[in-house]
Amino acid sequence: MTMQSAASVTDDAIANRPMGAIRSFFRRMRGTTHSIHQSERKDVAMNAQTEIKAADNGVNVEALLGAREAITGMPAAGQFKWRTRCDWIDGVHTQSTVDGFFGLGAEQERNARFEITTDHPEQFAAKNQGATPIEIVLSALGACLTGGVASVAQHRGIQLRKVTAFVEGDMDLAGVLGIDADVRNGFSGIRVRFEIDADATPEEIAAVVAQSQKRSAVFDIIANPGNVSVTVA
């Protein structure tokens, strides 16, 4: 599930904004009326080609646009609550379970539940039963941006063949170990490097990746501060 999808696809049109005016300008110069012929699209546009190509990245853009429209008209439907439950197993070994969520005005179920196991590697004197929580965070960032790339590319008519995100975070253990109060616990920096094979120019690919960041929930969560409250029942 990528939260960014519904909104990001509509921004595609904005990104190509100048073309509407340019097209209408040429339309006037040619003295034609409303219809834009495909040949016309081809010769004016740097991006208009995306409107006449059929790409299939497996993203249902129409459904996402429909959801966007529905939520615009009924903002309460857009209020979601996402949840996970985390159980301690042993040591730093935990298991999280994800199933229902709240949204569209009601509790929602899905047809499967998912489990995420975390642990630490042997170097941390642990049993290495799963990835560390911070690697799950990096994975979530990579997943959200990659899903966003697929959604934006779909809406722009860009066929993807291969997309891989390599995510790396820098951490100074002096923070989490309490050695140096000036060092933060979390990452001092995160880098994401995409390798993308697609039917598009490097500029078009860069624009898809930028748009994916712009509408990514996880990117926002990591890049911007937020309030967290923790209580004990």
Partner: peptide
């Protein structure tokens, strides 16, 4: 000259955003 300044409000896809 290119007509960009004359782009009409019905020609844009996300009017609220622009």
């Amino acid at each position: 000259a290119s007509g960009l300044q004359d782009t009409g409000y019905r020609e844009v896809d996300d009017l609220d955003r622009v």
